[in-house]
């Protein structure tokens, strides 16, 4: 099981739009809710009402401040869950075969019944996408909502990951990267979707869309005509008003 499939029939994954993500954590909690109730052991919380609460989450939203050499600083909200890597090191290190990548759709999963909770896969993942559940003693990770996307008990429109369904800003997209015409392939193409830490050779399936350029001070020459003065003071203004009103359709 720890061998990666040479290829997968489909490559399901997410596109996360950093231009649009407002950092609301909706996806974080929807994920927590769905996965506490569904696939495998519940996502537990320790010291839930205490001094150092700490629970298992499969999706977390960071934020980064970016300071360009000139111009104003920017803030980028940055959601992160498993990227379902094609060359997933978390899978090959697993001693039990509990970690595997599905050959049908490329989803990386943990078979919790086989997991000994050694934690090595979490060490092998560069992205911090795996968390050991302190209560269940098994490794938890994003399942790409494998129990939603094919779930015949859900209406067809709802067969998408919980985090995608809930994202109020529409910053998360789910689809098949093996299909060049899919929404996710097209978005990646059009908006220059990129990989996280490409140098580590994990070949993530999930892609990130860069924030659009911010604070472009447009050439004042382009904008200046829009503010071409018609007057310098109130009197001049009334003169202009007079002239303009008479030119309007139905004017005096």
């Amino acid at each position: 099981m720890t061998a990666l499939p040479p290829t997968t029939d489909r490559k399901l994954g997410l596109v996360i739009d950093l231009d649009t993500c407002v950092g609301c954590h909706a996806c974080v909690v929807a994920c927590k809710g769905w996965n506490t109730e569904n696939y495998g052991a519940p996502l537990s919380d320790q010291d839930a009402y205490g001094g150092a609460p700490s629970g298992t989450f499969l999706n977390r939203v960071h934020s980064y401040e970016v300071r360009p050499t000139t111009g104003t600083a920017k803030l980028v909200h940055f959601p992160k869950s498993c990227l379902h890597c094609d060359d997933a090191p978390c899978v090959t290190v697993c001693p039990t075969g509990a970690s595997y990548k599905r050959s049908a759709d490329g989803i990386v999963l943990v078979n919790e019944d086989a997991c000994i909770g050694c934690g090595l896969c979490a060490w092998a993942c560069p992205y911090g996408a795996r968390e050991m559940d302190a209560d269940a003693g098994v490794m938890k990770k994003c399942t790409l909502c494998v129990d939603r996307i094919y779930n015949e008990n859900l209406p067809e429109v709802d067969r998408e990951p919980a985090c995608v369904r809930t994202c109020p800003a529409g910053a998360r997209h789910f689809g098949d990267f093996a299909d060049p015409d899919s929404n996710v392939s097209r978005l990646t193409e059009e908006r220059g979707g990129f990989d996280l830490m490409p140098e580590l050779g994990t070949k993530p399936v999930n892609k990130y869309l860069p924030p659009r350029e911010r604070d472009r001070s447009e050439d004042i020459d382009i904008l200046a005509p829009y503010l071409e003065p018609v007057t310098e003071d109130a009197n001049g203004f009334l003169g202009w008003l007079e002239r303009t009103l008479s030119k309007l359709p139905g004017g005096r």
């Binding site: 980064y64 970016v66 980028v76 940055f78 996280l196 140098e199 860069p210």
Partner: peptide, 13 residues
């Protein structure tokens, strides 16, 4: 490289 935001400037968590 971790965030892919390198092109925008200095990055701070």
């Amino acid at each position: 490289t971790a965030t892919g935001l390198g092109g925008m400037g200095d990055i701070r968590a």
